[in-house]
């Protein structure tokens, strides 16, 4: 299953997602500003922020240990690996020889684990509180994501994301009710996991000081921010690859004129991602915040949708 071409496609995917992640977040910021009737920053503002932060001095609490120092790197690296596994530009998973959807879910856990520990490690109030919030949300959301992905994997007969993507793209998995419901549940779960409203707002600085990010500064903060932008794009990419894989390069057309078709697929992916970011931004800004401890009341809906999707799968509709 390892081929040099797919290896480079995977690397390309990871690097492209790395490169465009701040752009998508910038788009989000612009959208929010427009909906608030503000002028807002430029769409490229995030790049400028990151470059500036890279040059700044780092200020570290003396309680911080090596976990704190390693976290920015681990965040970026795990996101890069996920980005290389998910079938984004092709409908095959470029790094399918590394792992499947279970690995993808647990690589998120890897970055979250370090994120939360780093929040605790500094001894900062906000870091610790933000860390535990992050973990609670994931405990509520992860079963939903896994159940939906599991149902899709059962329909495809494989936990390989590429196989699922190909089968959805080529219509071998008909769009059953269960797929629609699963898509709904997964969309909701990704929305929450992306750190959007209703429970989380990275810009609510007065309340939680951005959680575990509080203590990061300088180049660590730059990497952390970049990692978080990537996490959002990767979630969107995962959603696209499982539920909307149409238009990406299929396995058969891969051999001839590879790079042209990949280029086309990149453009198609950008279009889909911008559309989803647009929807997310509209939803986010049209929504009131929910008290954090009430999160479970809302996430039950997602779990309900996921279970319904499973029930419909059992009934074959």
């Amino acid at each position: 299953m390892i081929s040099a071409t797919m290896f480079f496609v995977g690397l390309l995917q990871a690097l492209v997602i790395l490169a465009v992640a701040p752009l998508f977040s910038g788009f989000s910021r612009v959208m929010r500003a427009k909906m608030h009737n503000r002028r807002g920053p430029s769409i490229f503002q995030n790049y400028r922020d990151i470059v500036k932060l890279m040059k700044r001095q780092e200020v570290v609490s003396e309680q911080a240990g090596w976990v704190f120092r390693a976290t920015p790197y681990i965040t970026i690296v795990s996101m890069l690996l996920i980005a290389a596994i998910i079938p984004v530009f092709t409908s095959r998973s470029p790094f399918e020889w590394v792992g499947d959807l279970i690995l993808v879910v647990y690589l998120y856990a890897l970055s979250r684990f370090f994120f939360s520990v780093s929040g605790l490690e500094t001894g900062s109030t906000f870091g610790g509180m933000g860390g535990r919030r992050e973990l609670l949300i994931s405990a509520l959301i992860e079963p939903v994501m896994l159940l939906v992905l599991f149902v899709m994997a059962l329909l495809a007969g494989s936990t390989n994301l590429g196989v699922i993507s190909t089968k959805v793209a080529t219509g071998q998995i008909p769009l059953y009710t269960s797929v629609w419901l699963g898509m709904l549940a997964f969309a909701f779960a990704s929305f929450v996991e992306m750190g959007k409203l209703p429970f989380d707002l990275a810009e609510a600085e007065q309340e939680l000081q951005e959680g575990p990010l509080t203590e990061f500064s300088g180049k660590s903060l730059a990497l952390m921010k970049w990692g978080i932008y990537m996490k959002q794009v990767v979630l969107v990419a995962l959603f696209v690859s499982v539920f909307l894989p149409f238009g990406s390069v299929t396995a058969t057309s891969l051999v001839s004129q590879l790079w042209i078709s990949v280029l086309l697929a990149v453009v198609i992916f950008f279009a889909k991602a911008f559309l989803l970011y647009f929807i997310v931004a509209v939803l986010e800004n049209a929504m009131a915040r929910v008290r954090f401890l009430k999160a479970s009341a809302v996430t039950w809906t997602a779990l309900g949708a996921a279970i319904l999707s499973f029930v419909f799968y059992l009934a074959n509709v």
């Binding site: 001095q57 200020v59 609490s61 003396e62 309680q63 001894g123 900062s124 109030t125």
Partner: peptide
């Protein structure tokens, strides 16, 4: 890198 004694 500057090390400070306390977190923010």
């Amino acid at each position: 890198t500057k090390t400070v004694s306390d977190p923010w």
